[in-house]
Design a protein around this nucleic acid. Structure first.
Lengths: 263, 263
DNA sequence: CTCAATATCAACAAAAATCGACATAAATGG
DNA sequence: CCATTTATGTCGATTTTTGTTGATATTGAG
């Protein structure tokens, strides 16, 4: 009778190691190819790789194995693809507010990435940002003057929140700052997840004559991961750009703001 | 009844990875061209790329696919598209030298942009660079640790050569530095146009255990704009990666280097 | 504006890949 | 040595993907 159903220490076969190494090395390998390399049948490859795929060591697609290290879809880009149309509309609206020659501080976040793209149609901008993505997007436009704030980049979104980042932002003096938020609460206002984001937003607002808050309309509903930290208070004359009219319940926290609905 | 157990992670096919990499590297690729590269029908390319376009991983126009990554139309792109096949081959060769977990300093330049793309398949890298493009390309890979050296970005290539850039590079201690050159002279060696590039190369070499010089074979011929400044001398054991065997006339300046020919 | 050239799309048949089951070979443990 | 477990290869049914064809849409030129 079968006593020990559970596989060897970690479900390993003598091929496991070489398979994983080969897949990681090549990024993508067809099952056929792999079976020839190891001199075994394709069926064996499937049998060995199935548990690996379940454990997430590698990933299976029809006809081939793909390294999970392939990072085709880092979290940042998957967030980019969420609500794409709305974010693009908002980005264009923000780009309409900002004029050629203006100076702008831009925070990190997926909406800001779209705004950076939209701002490529503007010329002679002076940009300060702590997002490497925004910086590299706008730096290569002839005539722009881009400052990248910070040195150490966060891995999931390529943004920096180190001391030098704040120094650069605080030294700046800009016409606008472009901010974002993870959620909008009917009484608490604009919320984000991390303290460093609040700090950066505060620094940018202090350096800017006017603030632009860019949030898509889905942020008016409660999010799954509840953000707990408040963004600094916007003031009279600041701008809110979104893609649908805010529900009445939010009129309180939006008091005094210039509201622009994109679309 | 067939249950839906085939949980294809995210609509991936065995071609997705290579398609995305190719599109990102080349900026723009026609569907025809891609189908020839992969040896499949154009229809297959369309089928695979449609969901990718919907997710925003790349973007479709009539007849071609365009990278959404760092869309660049300024001079940078024209240099990017020069010799792209050779540069891609060189980039892959460099990525083969560098291992997961290594620390690398990367300079600016079009070849370095390709190398950054190729290095996306590596994991847990520690990167120091003065190019915003390289930084943002590699920063978002989970596990990587990227430092952006410098604040003020040059407009034509998004690179920084200010004081803080040198401070960051000089503080670093890396396994490899990846350098490039505008021309190779048979007796003077590796040449570039600007003093700041020499300074940066020097700083990177001093911080690195081993240097990798990546130049395509066309650089062995005299260029139209003659670069006048010498890169610092490479030393015994440093690596030259190129795409064709250097002519005999250059043996003198390449003495002692490990020469790797990609392709 | 029309026209030709080319690109895209939908649908179907052919090809390839997968999975399950069983037989055989290798390894294991007394 | 044999009994038993484990791993591997082979075969057929099923599912998925791919190439082809013909219709439709888009582009650029005249």
């Amino acid at each position: 009778m079968p006593v020990n159903r559970s596989k060897t220490p970690s479900g390993m076969s003598k091929y496991t190691d070489e398979i994983v190494r080969t897949v990681d090395m090549m990024g993508t390998v067809s099952v056929q190819e792999l079976s020839q390399i190891l001199g075994v049948s394709d069926q064996t490859i499937r049998r060995v790789t199935r548990p690996l795929a379940e454990r997430g060591v590698l990933s299976k697609v029809h006809g081939a194995l793909v390294s999970t290290k392939s990072a085709l879809d880092p979290p940042f880009l998957s967030r980019m693809s969420l609500n794409r149309a709305a974010k693009m509309a908002i980005a264009n609206e923000v780009a309409a507010v900002i004029q050629d020659g203006d100076s702008v501080a831009i925070d990190t976040g997926s909406t800001s990435a779209f705004i950076a793209q939209a701002l490529r149609q503007r010329r002679d901008l002076i940009i300060v940002t702590n997002s490497a993505y925004v910086a590299s997007t706008l730096a290569m436009i002839p005539g722009n003057n881009v400052s990248m704030a910070g040195t150490q980049l966060r891995d999931h979104d390529g943004a920096s929140f180190d001391r030098s980042a704040f120094q650069v932002v605080e030294r700046a003096q800009v016409d606008y700052c472009v901010l974002s938020a993870s959620m909008i609460h009917a009484t608490k206002g604009f919320l984000v997840h991390e303290q460093c984001e609040v700090d950066m937003a505060t620094a940018m607002m202090n350096s800017a004559a006017r603030s632009i808050m860019a949030v898509d309309a889905t942020k008016f509903q409660p999010q799954d991961r509840k953000p707990a930290l408040r963004q600094p208070q916007l003031v009279e004359g600041d701008i809110l750009v979104t893609d649908a009219s805010p529900p009445n319940a939010f009129h309180g926290v939006l008091e005094g703001l210039e509201i622009r609905v994109a679309g």
